[in-house]
Each structure stands twice: as structure tokens, then as C-alpha cells.
Amino acid sequence: MYKTASRFLQYLAYKGATFWQPKHKRKKPKPQRNIIPKKIITAYRKKKYVKGKIIGQIKGGYSIHISSSKVFCPFSEMYPKGITKSDLSNLQNKELEFKIIQVYPNVVVSRKQAAKMEALRNARMAFKKRVILSGVVKEIKEYGVFIDIGGTDGLLRINEIKKKGLSSSDLIKGKIIKIVITDLDINTSRISLSLPVDLQTDHPFTKSDLVGI
């Protein structure tokens, strides 16, 4: 019986017949994870800011070069509203501060959060030196007006406005006005504002001096 079967198989092989063989599935190679620099991981864990450069615009945001790596910054995390594309093009290849907000599966950074912290640091210096600043009227409420002072907001209370002989109707949204910082809390990002006085005469500025610069 075995001889007959063997001869039969030889005959089939002679005729060129092929036999079914189980196919071995090839194991798919595991995707390699991006090697994240230690500097980026440390900054993420310690919530520190890192310096990087804007390389260019890509789908959904911007490509940023940080510590010999390309990372991603979404449009929503690039800058507050009001920044134009021409402003961003001027910042390309300039060293800026970023905050790491995600490291896996891809590194994602935020310029908006870092810019806000920079604005708070600048506001603290202006507060210490009692510098007169220019701010943009951002939002008008019953209790006061929120003023954008370069990346962060301060509150100009309604009683401070009335002291200078003005009303909330004089402060139109988008107007540039002169203000001084009277109080600042870095931890809560709360900034209190007031309308300034002329440092030479020690008298309040007139309405034309304060509004419509």
C-alpha cells in the first residue's frame, strides 16, 4: 500500500502537480516609537518652558524645531486671537519659548501658554517700575473693562473709569488706551489696572490723552 502511494506521488510530481502547503504568516514589524529627547521629557514633567523655532506651516498647525527634533504646534495653541499670518511669518526661524503639553504618541507644544507667561513677566516688570502701558479694549462688562496688555488681560474696574471722568461708552472695543498696573498676582494671573496720571504735573490725563491713541 505504501509503495503504491509513493509511486502515485512520484507520478504526480512527474506531471508537475503541486501540493498544498500551509502558509506561514509573516509577523508585521512593530512600529518604532519616535525617540523623544530627554530635554523635552524633563521639560514636560517639570512643566518648564523650552526654546524652539518655527520651521513652517503644516496640516493643522506648525512644525517647530526643538532640541534637534521636529514637534507639532496646533493652530489653536499658536497664538491668541488677533495675531495675523503676516505676524507669524515674521516670527519664523526666531527663537521663542514653548510649553510641552503632550509627549506621546507625538510631541505637541503650545506657544500661546508660553506667550501668556512672558506677558505676565513683562507686566510684573511694568508694575514694579510703574510704567505707563498701552492696552487694547477687549471686553466690556458691567463691573469693568478687560484690557489686553500684550498677551494677557487686566481688569479696569468701573469705579476707576468714573474717577477720571470717563464712562464705559468712551472705551470702545478695539480702542487703544493708556493704563498702569496697580496690582498683579502671578499665581492667579489676575491684573488690576487704573488710568494713569501725568507724572510731571501729578494730574490725571485728559480724555483725549487717554483714549484714541
Rank of each mutant, 00 (worst) to 15 (best):
K70D: 08
L156V: 08
L156M: 07
V108C: 03
S68N: 15
G135Y: 11
N90L: 15
K70A: 06
K38A: 10
V103F: 12
Y62S: 10
A119F: 12
Y2A: 09
G82I: 10
N122G: 04
Q102I: 02
P204V: 03
K112Q: 06
L12Q: 13
G60T: 12
P80Q: 11
F75W: 11
K141I: 05
D153I: 03
R157W: 07
K27M: 03
N93C: 00
N122T: 06
K173Y: 04
K173D: 01
R7E: 13
T18E: 14
V71C: 12
K85P: 03
S134H: 11
T4A: 09
A115R: 15
R111Y: 10
K27D: 06
W20G: 02
I55S: 13
L88V: 15
G56A: 09
L133S: 02
F98P: 05
N106P: 00
Q21I: 07
V145D: 02
L193T: 07
K138A: 14
E139F: 04
K59F: 13
L156N: 08
S167A: 07
I172W: 01
S168F: 07
K47C: 00
K23P: 01
P22S: 10
F98N: 05
E139Y: 09
Q57S: 11
V131D: 09
L166N: 06
P204L: 02
M117H: 12
V180Y: 06
K48P: 00
R157D: 04
K129H: 13
L199I: 15
